[in-house]
Design a protein around this nucleic acid. Structure first.
Length: 813
RNA sequence: GCGGGCGUGGCGGAAUCCGGCAGACGCACCAGGCUUAGGACCUGGUGGACCGCAGGGUCCAUGGGGGUUCAAAUCCCUCCGCCCGCACCA
């Protein structure tokens, strides 16, 4: 009898040994190809929960597999340590965000180590430390110099609960709530800092230089929202050009009025004196309305005539000008021409204000009568002067050409993407390195003065104003340009700035001279494999692409994209099928399971539950299955009792076949992140070997090699168990430095196959035949089968389809 | 409204890319063994209906309907249901 599998003991022992040996400390090694593997770093919220394990342990398994494939794998870890929860928790618990964060990090370090992952801890980063965030400030200054960072007054999204502005990406859903706390967001006019991500809108649409999931590409593409169309220039009767954007220039002759956004700069100038009061009231209401909860917003299209007219660029027709809050200042040109017959919103508006609705695209089967609804499809142009009879497609081109010739328009592209608002009126973030001088204006902090340190003793209760603003010692400074009294910017940066470039900092986390060492960059970049949740599809994953492109244009890297391959794992739900949350009380603590059954069990169970991108509910029962499996592996490998009769050579061949077939499957599955089927294959293999051992296989000369193969295949998935078994078989330390085995095509090959015999596509018989019989032979085998003959009896054989190695289908009539 | 995805046993899922034995692997369940007993463990069974004492056999079945094909969970069309993203975007 062997001793029992005791994960607690062996896991502690091997973790200590690996740590002592620096087994996972990575150095450059020109003799091996590099592989840079990054999994999204955690936010130090307190305890590592099962979701972290679900994200990280399969990543670790894949990284280990790649390492065994001969690559020099860099697999770092760090902490996304700035952000609101720290501040909120600190307020709640009467502690300091720094203390709270660092205590959490300390606890999570221990929990992360308990995963047995091959993180290279010597490269750990913590973003709330000055040695990290100083480089946020450095990037800010670089961006500022390049015109990629700018300050502007804008109506920004404001979360009244968190008391801070949000990036547009952080406002979610039709209800427009704060991504973090779910509070409905309001609008505020504030002077804020932006990163000019729109400069890269077009390039961000190009995904050809990497291999990212279709899903993420689609989300980003939708978010960027590219529209091709035409800019059309109308002219007010006072002579002001009024530019509108349309995707349907073929409907230009149907435009019967213009609508400007209430905030449009021309509104004040164009409004006639007798409409002034009404317009002012509407503008006021619109502005107020945007400050009221958006939930209450009705979808009615309202507007006000401003008493002014414009001239149509092609017909010179006289067109009334309205303002309406359904026109957004921030999209297109902030003004539209309304084509009520062919746009639903304009249709409603026109009916409400009794404006004409001329049809200029004939709907199919149109009877010439007024439309009951806007016809938004394409068709043949009518009532459009010289363009009558053209198709929409042709019309779009020709109308645009006519506008260009007349100097009244041009082809144009518009994006939905807005610049990235990075200012946050909170304490726990990177101070924005800008100084305001009454004489010199906004002055960047000189590089030599970095970092602008976050004062440790600031009062950080949220009041809606930046906490730093009330810290006079922080705020008051002198102008770096003129030396006069000046004030610091008191907003801090969005924490997504931190995560936009952290993969570069891992390369040289202790470099005090620059954000990262370019020599290290040349050895490791780009990230070969990135793993993390889909929830960052339009946030982090777009921001980091932007950062890399900006860094490229600043000459810091020679990459176009930061991460070549991306895999989005799913989310693991509570046992009740709901998202885990403290309030629901369904949070699964991995420590309980690790304590009871061991790390390796939890690791392999998370990989086994289903496809990694699927996620799903945690089933506490299911983990027993893999626990049994690991115990069975232990028994199989170590139980030396001779069992069964002495084996013939065919048993050895079968042992080889089973293990090499498994090796082939596991290799292919790990390549494709299909951990669940890899584990299933290993279970089948173990089951098969157990049976074979009963037939005497343990005495065969092929048995020891099979055991070694089994252990090597388990090494990425259950690193401790594999190391222990490897040692007990007397193999050299460490199993994690062994090359991944290659399967032997000869061993994999079956000598006999099960040939499926069908009649008219229905299975009627299965026969064992030697592998490699040719089609004619297989056909004869099929026609010789009694069961097949029973079904062709009395009918004529029309055809016999032979798929060598698989099946024969006899077609009868 | 626009865009994307998914529907397979009691459950998680496999086979879907590239058409070829549907239900791998595991959970749960049932029966048996072991045990004073329970648990653990081991062995076997387990989609449905029907026929047979039995060995076994027949039919049905991958959300519904249709199509292509010798052959469809897989490809195409259509409907239904669920999920996700965006949303007054001109």
């Amino acid at each position: 009898m062997t001793d029992q599998y005791d994960p607690k003991t062996i896991e502690a022992r091997w973790q200590a040994r690996w740590e002592a040996d620096g087994l996972y400390r990575i150095r450059e090694d020109p003799s091996r190809p590099k592989f840079y593997f990054v999994t999204m770093y955690p936010y130090p919220s307190g305890d590592l929960h099962i979701g972290h394990w679900y994200a990280m342990t399969p990543s670790d398994a894949k990284a280990r597999y790649v390492r065994m494939r001969g690559y020099n794998v860099l697999f770092p870890i760090g902490f996304d340590a700035f952000g609101l929860p720290a501040e909120n928790a600190a307020i709640q618990h009467g502690t300091h965000p720094y203390k709270w964060t660092m205590a959490n990090i300390e606890r999570m370090r221990g929990q992360l180590r308990s995963m047995g992952a091959m993180f290279d801890w010597s490269r750990e980063i913590v973003t709330c430390r000055p040695d990290y965030y100083t480089w946020n400030q450095w990037f800010f200054l670089k961006f500022y110099e390049a015109g990629l960072a700018y300050r502007a007054m804008a109506a920004v999204d404001w979360c009244p609960h968190d008391n801070t502005t949000l990036a547009r990406e952080q406002v979610v859903g039709a209800e427009r709530v704060c991504e973090r706390c779910g509070t409905p967001v309001i609008k505020k006019d504030l002077e804020q800092w932006f990163f000019r991500i729109t400069r890269y809108a077009e390039e961000l649409l190009d995904f050809t230089k990497m291999d990212w999931p279709e899903r993420v590409q689609t989300l980003q593409r939708n978010w960027i929202g590219r529209s091709e169309g035409t800019e059309v220039v109308y002219t007010s009767e006072q002579g002001d050009p009024i530019t509108v954007f349309t995707t349907r220039p073929d409907t230009l002759f149907g435009a019967t009025f213009l609508v400007l956004a209430p905030e449009h700069p021309l509104v004040e100038k164009l409004t006639s004196p007798e409409h002034c009061a009404e317009v002012a009231a509407y503008v006021h209401r619109a502005r107020r309305q945007s400050e009221i909860e958006r939930l209450a917003e009705d979808r009615e299209k309202t507007g006000v005539f401003i008493g002014a007219y414009a001239r149509h660029p092609l017909t010179n027709g006289r067109i009334p000008i309205y303002i309406g809050d359904y026109v957004l200042l921030t999209y297109g040109t902030g003004a539209i021409h309304a084509v009520p017959a062919h746009d639903s919103r304009d249709f409603v508006f026109a009916h409400r204000y009794r404006l004409p609705v001329p049809v200029v695209i004939a709907p199919p089967d149109w009877d010439g009568k007024p439309l009951r609804d806007a016809y938004i499809g394409e068709g043949i142009m009518v009532n459009s002067g010289p363009f009558d009879g053209l198709s929409s497609d042709e019309g779009r081109r020709r109308v645009t050409e006519a506008l260009v010739r007349a100097g009244r328009g041009r082809p144009a592209v518009t994006y939905r993407l807005r610049d990235w608002l990075i200012s946050r009126q909170r304490y726990w973030g990177t101070p924005i390195p800008i100084i305001y001088c009454s004489r010199c204006g906004a002055v960047p902090v000189p590089y030599d003065d970095l970092p602008v340190l976050l004062p440790e003793d600031a009062e950080f209760l949220p009041t809606g104003e930046s906490p730093l603003r009330r810290d006079a010692r922080f705020r008051r400074t002198t102008c770096p340009r003129c030396g006069g009294a000046a004030e610091r910017e008191t907003d801090t940066m969005d924490t997504f700035v931190d995560s936009s470039w952290y993969q570069y900092r891992y390369l040289s986390p202790h470099d005090t001279a620059r954000p990262f060492d370019p020599a290290q960059g040349r050895s490791w970049l780009p990230v070969d494999q990135y793993t993390g949740g889909i929830e960052h599809a339009v946030l982090h994953l777009m921001y980091t692409r932007f950062f890399t492109k900006a860094m490229r244009d600043l000459g810091l890297v020679s990459l176009d994209e930061p991460m070549l391959r991306l895999f989005n794992q799913g989310i693991i739900l509570g046992p009740d099928g709901h998202r885990m949350s403290k309030s629901r009380g369904n949070v699964v603590n991995p420590d309980d399971y690790v304590g009871a059954m061991g790390t390796d069990v939890v690791r392999i169970y998370l990989m086994f539950v289903g496809p990694w991108d699927g996620g799903g509910p945690w089933n506490p029962k299911g983990i027993e299955g893999v626990n049994r499996f690991l115990h069975r592996v232990w028994q199989l490998v170590l139980d030396a009792r001779p069992s069964g009769p002495a084996a013939g050579p065919e048993v050895g061949a079968e042992v080889r076949r089973v293990t090499h077939q498994t090796l082939k499957r596991v290799t292919e599955d790990l390549e494709g992140f299909r951990f669940n089927t890899a584990v299933a294959a290993l279970m089948e293999c173990t089951n098969a070997l157990s049976k074979l051992r009963e037939a005497g296989a343990a005495r065969s000369a092929d048995w020891p090699a099979a055991m070694r193969l089994l252990i090597l295949m388990l090494a990425p998935l259950t690193p401790h168990l594999a190391e222990e078994l490897w040692q007990r078989l007397g193999q050299p330390y460490s199993v994690h430095q062994q090359p991944w085995p290659e399967w032997d095509p000869r061993a994999v090959r079956e000598e006999t196959i099960t040939l499926v015999l069908q009649v008219n596509g229905r299975v009627r018989d299965r026969v064992m035949v030697p592998a490699g019989l040719d089609a004619a032979h297989l056909r004869d085998v099929a026609l010789a089968s009694d069961k097949v003959r029973k079904f062709i009896d009395g009918k004529s054989v029309e055809d016999v389809i032979v798929v060598p190695g698989k099946l024969v289908n006899v077609v009868v009539r």
